[in-house]
Each structure stands twice: as structure tokens, then as C-alpha cells.
């Protein structure tokens, strides 16, 4: 049996209180193995984004357990979660979310620099390598604001991979791209998954994107339905 990367059991997440209380996750359970390339599907409001946020340690569940790499993340404090996130989890957002005052390379090496307290030569070299693999070797020192939408999303993918995380969570990574750029980004993700064994969980509404993944996880009404 393949080794489990993460396992959540009975995840519940509610927002608000009293009559305004909204239960988004209703006892969701999920296991992901190392090296998976999975698509997270489901209609709007089904709880996909909330699940990604909790798996990314940006939010704590109301109840349930969340284990990753053998660490119980439901009881960890903010400092521990921040450190864990930095070392083991990468993010790709729908709107790239690059730091506008930084160049492409500076954006990519941010996760390492923030951990080490400075921009090392080794980090720069890895950043350049990642950008090169994303086809952006000639855009390394470009201000991020001067890049096209597709280029920005590829920089975001490179940034997510900078610390060689075990898990990359991508929330609609191609939702804001044209077809060609979307295919390019998904091909890169697939290649990294195959080459480095990085686990990807990609939230998408696009059936064609989902079809490129090995596994489809369907969420509905706050639980995994398929």
C-alpha cells in the first residue's frame, strides 16, 4: 500500500454563529498518497476552497482531525503551522498572487528567503532553474507586473515548488488563463509530478483539466461524494 501523505477525518468547518451559522464542511474525510495528481471537483459552495485552505494550514477546522506527514496539524499553534506550511506545502492561486514589487526570481525564492532570513546564492540558483523549467529563463529579472497572465501563473508554480514541498495545493490555477496557457501550466504540473513525485491537489471546474489528473475527488454538500 502507498504511504499516506495526508489524512483528514470527519472535518467540520462552520462560519458565523447562531442563526447565521453556516456549515461548509460536514464531516469530510480524505486520504491522499504521496505522488498523487488529483483534481478536486464540485460545484460552487461545495466546500472545495475551504478544504484547500484547511489542508494548506491557513485555517483550522472546527472539528475533525488533520494529519500530514505524521504530524497532527489540528493541535499545532500558528508558529508551528507557519513553519510546516513553509517547508511542506506549496500554493498556486487562481490569480497568481505574485508580490508586485518583486521580480520573477525574487517571487520564486521568497519561500526560501523568508525561512533563511536572506536570499542565498543556492536559493537564487534553484529559482533560476525552476524559472528555466517553466520556460521563463529570459524573464528572471522582470518585474512581476510586466509579465503576461500565463507567465505570472508559471512563476507562481515555480514559487510553489521552491522549497520542494511534498504537497502543492492549486486553487483554479488555470481559471484565469487562456486555453493555451492553461494547457501549458497543466503540462508543467504533470511533468513535475512525474519527475519529482510532488503531490498535487488541483481544485477546478474544468472537466478537461480534471481529466488530465490521475484521480478526481468530488466534493458536494461538504463531504467527499466521489
Amino acid at each position: 500500500m502507498t504511504e499516506a501523505l495526508l489524512q483528514v477525518e470527519g472535518l467540520v468547518k462552520t462560519f458565523g454563529a447562531g442563526e447565521a451559522e453556516t456549515r461548509v464542511l460536514r464531516g469530510l474525510s480524505l486520504r491522499m498518497d504521496k505522488g498523487e495528481l488529483s483534481a478536486l471537483l464540485g460545484p460552487s459552495g461545495s466546500g472545495k476552497s475551504t478544504l484547500l485552505t484547511i489542508l494548506g494550514t491557513l485555517m483550522q477546522p472546527t472539528s475533525g482531525s488533520h494529519m500530514m506527514l505524521g504530524v497532527d496539524l489540528t493541535t499545532a499553534n500558528d508558529r508551528a503551522l507557519t513553519d510546516f506550511r513553509n517547508r511542506h506545502i506549496g500554493f498556486v492561486f487562481q490569480f497568481h498572487n505574485l508580490l508586485p514589487d518583486f521580480t520573477a526570481l525574487e517571487n520564486v525564492i521568497f519561500p526560501t528567503a523568508v525561512r533563511e532570513g536572506r536570499e542565498t546564492a543556492a536559493a537564487r540558483a534553484r529559482g533560476r532553474d525552476l524559472l528555466s523549467r517553466m520556460g521563463l529563463a529570459d524573464r528572471v529579472d522582470f518585474p512581476s507586473t510586466n509579465l503576461s497572465g500565463g507567465q505570472k501563473q508559471r512563476v507562481a508554480v515555480a514559487r510553489a515548488l521552491m522549497n520542494s514541498p511534498e504537497l502543492v495545493l492549486a486553487d483554479e490555477p488555470t481559471g484565469n488563463l487562456d486555453r493555451a496557457s492553461a494547457i501549458q501550466v497543466m503540462e508543467l504540473i504533470g511533468q513535475i509530478n512525474r519527475d519529482e513525485g510532488t503531490t498535487f491537489l488541483i481544485s477546478t471546474h474544468d472537466e478537461k483539466i480534471a481529466a488530465t489528473c490521475c484521480r478526481q475527488i468530488v466534493v458536494g454538500e461538504g463531504v467527499v461524494t466521489g
Binding site: 494548506g56 491557513l58 500558528d78 508558529r79 507557519t82 513553519d83 506550511r85 513553509n86 517547508r87 500554493f91 498572487n97 505574485l98 508580490l99 508586485p100 521568497f110 519561500p111 523568508v114 525561512r115 514559487r159 522549497n163
Partner: peptide
């Protein structure tokens, strides 16, 4: 605010 959020998501601590 958004940039701070990105930094925090990328592993920047509150102290940072």
C-alpha cells in the same frame, strides 16, 4: 493587505 496575506501563505511568520 493582500501582499501580507500572500507572504503569510508562503510561510512568513507574524514576527517576520
Amino acid at each position: 493587505k493582500a501582499e501580507i496575506g500572500i507572504m503569510r501563505a508562503m510561510g512568513a511568520s507574524r514576527r517576520f
